[in-house]
Amino acid sequence: MRDYAKGGALTEVTFYILLSLYTPKHGYAVMQFIEEQTGGRLALGAGTLYGALNTLLEKGWIAPWGEAEGRKKEYRITPLGRERAERELQRLRELAATASEIMGGAT
């Protein structure tokens, strides 16, 4: 994923996955969360989700949650992941403020 730790933007997929994992979820629930929250605009393929979850696990932004033995793997956001998500929210607020200032009441 093209995520830049040096204050850059997260991809929309990364941000949504992090948001979905504020409460522990397994893969299917993450897919459903993203689809519901975006009204179906963003529908993640299973392969893409698998790669994204593994990348976030490697970065330490999410972690496995609960006992995985005999049931579906669940994940939860870590304190580091929360910090990245909060930083992204701040960036989006700044972006929205700039856009509103320039575009004004554009519809």
Partner: peptide
Amino acid sequence: VEKEADGKPFELHTTYEDQIAC
């Protein structure tokens, strides 16, 4: 990979970056 049809497209890889890697 088999999925029960639900009227939605069945794609395993949906971002450009992932599709390029595959």
